[in-house]
Computed example of a mutant assay.
Amino acid sequence: MNIDFAAVLVVLTGLTGGIWLLDALVLAPRRAALVSSAGKIRSVAEIKLPWYVDLSKSFFPVILAVLVLRSFIVEPFRIPSESMVPTLLKGDFILVNKFTYGLRLPVLNTKVISNSLPRRGDVVVFRYPPDPAVAYIKRAVGLPGDRVAYHGKQLSINGQPVALTPLPNDPTMPAYLQFEEQLGEAKHRIQILADGRWGLAGFWSGLQPRRDPDGTVGWDYQVPPGHYFMMGDNRDNSSDGRVWGPVPEENLIGKAFFIWMNWDCITFNGQCGRIGNSIK
């Protein structure tokens, strides 16, 4: 079951803030009137705060601060899969800038302040189109209006092949070839299976995929207005726009920018050197 933490925070903020306001406007004056009518404090019980008021006053500022921070400034996420290898590893804990693509109201996801839009090459966190309750992370390869093509495992944007520079192979992953990809202003690493296979379970029908002469699956796609085409850096093992289509602008959450922890480091299995790295 997916828990909507934004909704939980909104409910808790409203509940604790409402109790605090109720005490300030109604309950506190009643307690003061009791003390005044007696001419003296008759017992500790008359001035002691009810437990629910005490808890609300303690937790409301904290919950409100977390809600504002998480909704409008920065939000932590954990990488659950290997779809962004080698840029991000399974178990990485990352931070996402919520302001980059404009401020949205929590739960309603209504944009209230516009800012910039994703640039080609950004690592973007967004609400998964088939199930908006789930957050996904991929790289934006196609902007609105772009013609995106993929043939022979070569990505092209608007008829121009994206520059690839071969990199030394990672001995821990001998089945893959790694490259540095120049996508817009972003230089980053990607990997593909060395034997020419692909690990996708299927392709989105909107791509009209076809088998190229080299045996790989190729396609051409025009990104519609207000949408973005996302792909994982682990190109042959990523459920992304090739499987479920483009991402509408209203599904954007923010731009990933920082790795602050890795699960393997917590469990003493290595990867501590990734902590503090920026995401490119």
Rank of each mutant, 00 (worst) to 15 (best):
R211D: 09
G226I: 08
G241V: 09
K187D: 02
V123L: 11
P246N: 11
P129S: 10
L55H: 11
T172H: 07
R274Q: 09
P144Q: 09
S278A: 12
K40M: 02
G142L: 04
D236T: 12
M173D: 12
V148Y: 00
G17T: 00
K187S: 14
L95D: 07
L15T: 09
G14T: 01
R78W: 12
I253Y: 05
V243G: 02
P161F: 05
V85R: 06
L183I: 11
S116R: 13
H188K: 13
D122M: 06
L67E: 00
H227G: 08
L167Y: 10
I41S: 00
P168S: 10
D131L: 00
T16M: 02
V85W: 09
G202Y: 14
R127V: 07
I259Q: 06
I3W: 11
K90E: 15
D214E: 08
A133E: 11
L55F: 13
L34I: 12
V123S: 01
F99P: 00
Y101I: 09
N251V: 04
G232S: 13
R189T: 07
I190V: 15
L49T: 04
L117H: 05
N169I: 04
A201D: 15
P166I: 10
I266H: 06
G241M: 02
L21W: 03
M84C: 05
A33V: 04
Q222A: 15
I266Y: 10
N115C: 08
Y128K: 02
A32P: 03
P118K: 09
R30F: 01
P61D: 10
E185P: 00
Y176D: 11
G254W: 03
H227C: 10
T87F: 06
T13F: 06
R119I: 00
L9V: 07
L15A: 15
V134H: 00
W198T: 12
A33L: 12
G159D: 01
V148G: 05
G218F: 03
R104L: 08
K280P: 14
Y228Q: 11
G91F: 03
Q222T: 15
V10S: 03
A163C: 01
L49F: 08
I79N: 04
V44K: 04
D54V: 06
T216N: 12
P29S: 09
G199K: 12
G270Y: 01
K280D: 11
V44Q: 07
M261H: 11
P132M: 00
V11D: 07
A140F: 05
A201Y: 10
P76T: 12
P224R: 11
A175H: 00
L49E: 08
I79W: 06
P248T: 08
Q182K: 14
N237H: 14
V66W: 03
L252D: 06
V68M: 08
L49N: 02
H151G: 03
D170W: 11
E75C: 03
L177V: 08
Y52D: 13
V53C: 05
E250W: 10
D220R: 15
N269P: 06
W219V: 07
P50F: 04
T172S: 15
P132W: 03
G17L: 02
L155H: 03
W263T: 14
P168D: 13
K153N: 12
F5R: 13
P171R: 04
V74H: 07
F60T: 02
P161I: 01
S71T: 15
I275G: 02
D122Y: 00
S83T: 06
I47H: 03
